[in-house]
């Protein structure tokens, strides 16, 4: 039956290979936004995850859940009001939160690069795409041999599936999907080990989205890239990620491999979010919504941040913030009910 699932395979578990090297490790990271005359807004609190070579982690959450803040903090790109107040970010054993700005600049883009949301605005409209990719190379690797730059640009474009003759074209001659590909080519310019992709497929059509996802999946297989995929789309995460970190109001709701998240989620937020997401394989099933709205960072609830919207909240949830409970080898959830059932 075309259109319906034809191949059932459990790829989720297989990808998490313990022998692979850990490239990025985030430990208990907390970020506050400081503004004058107000108590600090706790934008991200106590978030941890690890990322191994060739692995794809999905950072999932609704708008305002702190996923963009977390992503920017990995390379210390936060606006001045945002401060890392606790925790560490290890990249190949080096703590990125303490090293000097100069050393960090050696890592930015060369080792860890970012594909930003909105490829439309991130490209300069008056310069050719090839030029802009060449600039990304020379800017970050000043001693790259000049005569080899054009060859490298063509190589990069080929890697992301753009024909070499589009090198001399301007961004407006590119379609939305091609612009996103060009952005990925720029991120790959210095052969990074980690790519952070911030909502790379939002605002693209499903078919183009599928093309970009396929590209990212191929790249990580071909180049051994580790990818942090920031998104709000649970369907996309299920399609390509190995691990998932579900965030809510700045804290980890649940962290597990992709199969666990989708088939045996323990946090009520993950469960509710899955119910709200339309599933084409189950048409005629009514969607359920989560009443209420995500909390504002300047007015967080006292207890669990999800408690006001939680369908199964108990009295304790409203007064006490839940701990991160370890439920298995690779499964963490922050919910009082999980503890009770342990």
């Amino acid at each position: 039956m075309p259109g319906r699932p034809t191949v059932e395979k459990d790829r989720g578990e297989a990808q998490i290979n313990p022998t692979k090297r850990t490239v990025l490790e985030v430990q208990n990271l907390s970020i506050n936004y400081i503004s004058e005359g107000k108590p600090p807004a706790r934008a991200v609190e106590n978030v941890s995850f690890t990322l191994k070579e060739g692995e794809l982690i999905g950072l999932v959450g609704e708008s305002g859940c702190g996923k963009t803040t977390l992503m920017l903090s990995l390379l210390r790109l936060l606006p001045s009001a945002g401060q890392i107040v606790d925790g560490k970010v290890f990249f190949n054993g080096k703590d990125l939160t303490t090293i000097s700005e100069k050393e960090l600049n050696k890592i930015r883009w060369k080792e860890i690069s970012i594909v930003f949301q909105g490829a439309m605005n991130a490209l300069n409209p008056v310069r050719t795409v090839g030029d802009q990719i060449a600039e990304a190379i020379t800017k970050h690797m000043p001693d790259f041999p000049k005569d080899k730059i054009q060859g490298r640009v063509i190589e990069l474009l080929d890697l992301v599936g753009i024909a070499a003759d589009h090198k001399e074209h301007y961004p407006h001659q590119y379609s939305g999907g091609m612009r996103q590909r060009a952005m990925i080519a720029m991120a790959l310019a210095c052969n990074p080990q980690v790519i952070i992709a911030d909502e790379p497929t939002t605002a693209l059509d499903v078919m183009i989205q599928a093309q970009i996802l396929e590209l990212l999946d191929n790249l990580r297989k071909k180049l051994g890239l580790a990818i942090v995929f920031v998104t709000h789309d649970l369907g996309v995460v299920a399609e390509i990620c190995d691990k998932v970190l579900v965030m809510y109001g700045g804290v980890t709701a649940e962290y597990a491999d992709v199969d666990t998240i989708y088939n045996s989620a323990r946090h009520p937020y993950t469960q509710e979010l899955l119910k709200a997401f339309p599933d084409l394989t189950k048409p005629k099933k009514k969607l359920s919504s989560i009443p209420g709205y995500p909390p504002r960072l300047d007015a967080l609830p006292d207890g669990c941040r999800f408690a006001p919207r939680c369908p199964v909240a108990i009295a304790r949830c409203h007064t006490e913030q839940p701990m991160l409970h370890k439920l298995g080898d690779m499964h963490i959830a922050s919910c009082h009910l999980v503890e009770a059932s342990k």
């Binding site: 259109g3 034809t6 088939n263």
Partner: peptide, 18 residues
């Protein structure tokens, strides 16, 4: 079009006609 619509279940990852 139907084959590329993401399905929120990793056990149902399927061949996509891209």
């Amino acid at each position: 079009l139907l084959s590329v619509i993401p399905v929120p279940n990793p056990r149902l990852r399927r061949e996509r006609i891209i």
